[in-house]
Design a protein around this nucleic acid. Sequence first.
DNA 1: GGTAGACCTGGACGC
DNA 2: GCGTCCAGGTCTACC
Length: 290
Amino acid sequence: MLLTLAARQPFFYPAVISSHGWPQLAPFEWQEGVEKLGYVMELSNGRVVRLEFTPAEGGLHVSAADSLNPAEQEETQNAARWMFALDLNLEPFYVIARQEPKLAHAAAGAYGRVLRSATLFEDVVKTILTTNTQWGGTKRMARGLVEAFGAVHPADPSRRAFPTAARLADLDEAALTDGVRLGYRAPYVLELARRVTRGELNLEVLKQSDLPTAELRKVLLGIKGIGGYAAAHVLLILGRYETLPIDSWGYKLVSREFYGGEPVTLAQIEAVFERFGDYRALAYWFWKWG
DNA sequence: GGTAGACCTGGACGC
DNA sequence: GCGTCCAGGTCTACC
């Protein structure tokens, strides 16, 4: 199966790939040199497919070795549109970016789309895995979850999808601490999976939510393990850019760039980016540091 | 509302 | 090989 999906212009495939570290997290599989992003996805009917994303003229190619029926094709297509934010209109951001030398590259190179996973559940879990650990730890934990609990691709048992909330909800905590070594994050992931499975928290509706960003942020902060940084990161994924996802590295960058290396507070960082209004998180995320 | 300490892991380092 | 220290956000208890 090969689909060609048109993107709202401007669209630049490498800009999405390099938007953050997600291509390095299972079940993504980035193939350097051939510009190919693999992804194993469990469809709503339980079927596991392996997709490959490559750049196309004006958009994105989505290919699968598996043959898909029309409903499966539609689900795959919708997932790809979401993951690459093909319909996102970033022109208001580019208008701002063109006026700031440190952001001009973003407008010229169509930066601003942030790669997403197929489900918001997967992205929230991965965001929890980025907290209070180094990047190597995040990769290890994501890989561990996929290898231990992801649904197997039938034609290639070495490849698995990201585990669904329902699959994780059935586990006991020891499976996540002793098995995947999530550490103290294990109860957070477990509680999130159980809330989603019980229907107490519907993350997927947040993708299209009309809630004001402040309300959306409250919902995210209600998830154990999601604090200020993580909520802002999930909001960035959702296309809400009013809050800044500042981690400890971000403090260092802003300190060096704007405050002569002196220690800075979050309020000082927010003051720097306030002038970018509703697009301040994109301005921070794609700022040309140094 | 602000702050201190605990949480857990892997890596770096010294012995 | 072993022990110690540190980095990395969030939670909870406390003020």
